[in-house]
Measured scan of single mutants.
Amino acid sequence: EVTIKANLIFANGSTQTAEFKGTFEKATSEAYAYADTLKKDNGEYTVDVADKGYTLNIKFAG
Rank of each mutant, 00 (worst) to 15 (best):
G13N: 10
L8N: 02
K59P: 01
K40F: 09
F60K: 00
T17K: 11
D48H: 10
N7L: 15
K26W: 14
T55Q: 09
D36C: 04
A18N: 14
G62A: 13
K21W: 12
T17A: 10
N42I: 06
G13L: 13
A61S: 12
F20D: 00
T17H: 14
F10S: 03
I9W: 15
V47Q: 02
K52L: 14
N12F: 06
S29G: 11
Q16F: 11
V2C: 04
K5Y: 14
T3H: 09
I9G: 06
D36W: 02
Y54K: 09
A18P: 04
T15M: 13
S14G: 10
T3I: 12
V2N: 06
L56P: 00
S29V: 10
G43S: 03
I58C: 03
N42V: 06
L38K: 09
A50I: 12
T23D: 13
I9Y: 14
L56V: 06
K39I: 09
K5D: 03
V49E: 08
Y45S: 01
I9E: 08
T15I: 14
T15K: 12
N57C: 05
G53F: 03
E44Y: 08
A33M: 13
K40Q: 12
K59W: 08
A61E: 09
A35D: 00
T46I: 14
T15G: 08
Y45K: 01
G13H: 11
A18W: 12
A27I: 03
G53W: 02
A18R: 15
K59E: 08
K21P: 05
I58W: 01
T28V: 11
F20R: 01
F20I: 03
L56F: 04
Y32T: 05
D41L: 12
K39G: 06
E30N: 13
Y54V: 05
K40R: 09
A31E: 00
Y54T: 07
E30Y: 09
T17R: 11
A27P: 01
T17S: 10
A6F: 02
D51M: 05
V47L: 05
K21V: 15
V49T: 11
K52N: 13
K39R: 12
A33H: 14
L38A: 04
T23K: 04
G53L: 03
T55F: 07
D51H: 06
A35V: 15
E19V: 13
D41T: 11
A35G: 02
N57Y: 11
Y54E: 06
L8R: 01
K5Q: 10
K39W: 05
G13C: 06
K39T: 08
G53Q: 03
G62N: 12
V47M: 05
F24T: 05
L56W: 03
A61V: 10
K5E: 06
N12W: 06
V2M: 07
Y32S: 03
S29F: 09
K5R: 13
N42M: 13
F60G: 00
T3K: 07
G22T: 02
Y45I: 03
G13F: 07
T3Y: 07
G43Q: 03
T23G: 07
Y34F: 13
K52H: 13
T55I: 14
E1F: 05
E44Q: 10
D36H: 06
L38Q: 10
D36I: 04
V2A: 07
N57K: 07
K59T: 13
A50S: 14
K40Y: 09
T3G: 04
Y34K: 04
A35W: 01
K40A: 10
G43E: 04
A61N: 14
A35I: 11
K40N: 09
A11Y: 11
S14M: 14
V49P: 07
N7R: 12
K5L: 14
Q16H: 15
L56N: 01
D36S: 05
S29T: 13
E30P: 00
Q16Y: 07
A33C: 05
G62H: 10
D48T: 12
L8C: 04
Y45N: 01
K26M: 15
T3N: 06
D51Y: 03
F10G: 02
Y32E: 03
G22N: 05
F10Q: 03
G43A: 03
F24R: 05
G13W: 07
F60E: 00
G62K: 09
I4H: 00
K39L: 06
A11M: 10
A33K: 15
A18H: 15
K52G: 13
A27E: 01
E1Y: 06
V2Q: 07
K59A: 10
Y54C: 04
